[in-house]
């Protein structure tokens, strides 16, 4: 079990002030404790007073969340991200983080560069995760809930248009939620290349989305709803890549001899779980977790029922010997 911050949903029944204390977010308390001014939720600001109320809130939120908004560089590609835990988990877009286990550079707003590693991504919805690997404690922001948003709600986009530029802090854009679906948020916060993976905030300073893609109009800016990150947190942390037909299912890394009527191994892949367990070419698998294996299809079906990380005893015939070999089921490599 990996250690990661608990980012479970908070019961909405808790009074807001208690919630703020509970989370230890002393900074947030002034924002949440005050009753929400009606001007923040009007369909149209009516006068200069309404505008002032919105302005004060936007200024306050921006000042608070900028420090956790980062630039990301992976190879030749530039994107954005946002830190969501003290120990350095960074939300970004799936097309920014890409394959797991790649090294990434995280650029703080003051230009400080940190080392990081890409984790999992859901290619379908375009969510992705990166972990800062440098030791330290990092400024972070809280994840909110996109599912509760109403169309028309004000939102703030931060990020690094055209990639991080020295001397330019994260760039603010203000807009409104124009459309909300399970798999996307659409706003008029204008985005451009380099913003990918940057955060969208509500007026409480909580992340409601991650920038993903644009269309040819200024009203087509698409963000990944934050809720999916929470719902799939463990998979992202574990480095799983899924969605869009590219599943990374359970895997042990052997090829089978198609000529054989038994479950005979033809080849063991390099660095695979099978190799680590000591399986060799020409071994014949007799049983999987004490269950008899008739043939290759049988064996494959048994593996597919297991989760990556499961340890399974195999009975194997090697020449005249019968061996007991324990194999730890792995995950299918991402690049296949």
């Amino acid at each position: 079990m990996r250690n990661h911050p608990r980012l479970s949903l908070t019961p909405s029944s808790l009074p807001r002030i208690a919630l703020a204390l509970l989370l230890g977010m002393a900074v947030l308390t002034p924002l949440l404790a005050e009753t929400r001014p009606p001007a923040l939720d009007k369909a149209v600001p009516e006068n200069i007073q309404d505008l002032r109320v919105i302005q004060e809130r936007v200024k306050k939120v921006t000042a608070k969340v900028s420090s956790a908004t980062v630039g990301i560089r992976i190879g030749d590609a530039a994107g954005s991200g946002v830190i969501v835990s003290k120990d350095g988990y960074v939300l970004t877009a799936g097309h920014v983080s890409g394959k797991p286990d790649r090294s990434a550079t995280i650029i703080m707003p003051d230009g400080k560069r940190l080392k990081g590693k890409t984790l999992g991504s859901n290619v379908g919805i375009d969510s992705g995760l990166i972990r800062i690997t440098d030791k330290g404690e990092w400024p972070f922001v809280e994840m909110g809930e996109a599912s509760k948003l109403k169309t028309g709600a004000w939102c703030l986009a931060l990020g690094h248009p055209e990639g991080y530029r020295p001397g330019r802090p994260p760039v603010l854009r203000l807009g409104r939620v124009l459309e909300r679906k399970d798999k996307l948020l659409r706003t008029d916060c204008a985005l451009v290349g380099g913003d990918s993976g940057g955060p969208l905030f509500d007026l409480d300073g909580k992340i409601i989305g991650i920038h993903s893609r644009i269309g040819d109009r200024l009203t087509i800016n698409i963000h990944v709803p934050i809720d999916t990150y929470r719902a799939t947190w463990d998979r992202l942390v574990d480095g799983e890549v899924w969605g869009d037909g590219r599943k990374r299912g359970p895997y042990i890394g052997v090829e089978f001899d198609e000529e054989s009527t038994e479950c005979k191994i033809a080849k063991v892949e390099k660095d695979s779980p099978a190799e680590k367990a000591g399986l060799r070419a020409n071994d014949v698998v007799l049983s999987f977790d004490k269950k008899k294996v008739e043939d290759f299809a049988d064996f494959l079906a048994s593996i597919k029922k297991r989760k990556p990380g499961d340890e399974v005893p195999l009975q194997v015939r090697r020449g005249a010997e019968i061996l007991e070999i324990k194999v730890v089921v792995g995950r299918h490599p991402a690049n296949r």
Binding site: A78, G152, G215
Partner: peptide, 29 residues
Amino acid sequence: YGLPLVISGALLSSPLTAYGQRTRRDGGE
């Protein structure tokens, strides 16, 4: 849905990668 928002680094290198289609989304109810 549109164009992914990651960009490729150096000024003199990035070729145009135009794989996006026009979409008809607009406004907000």
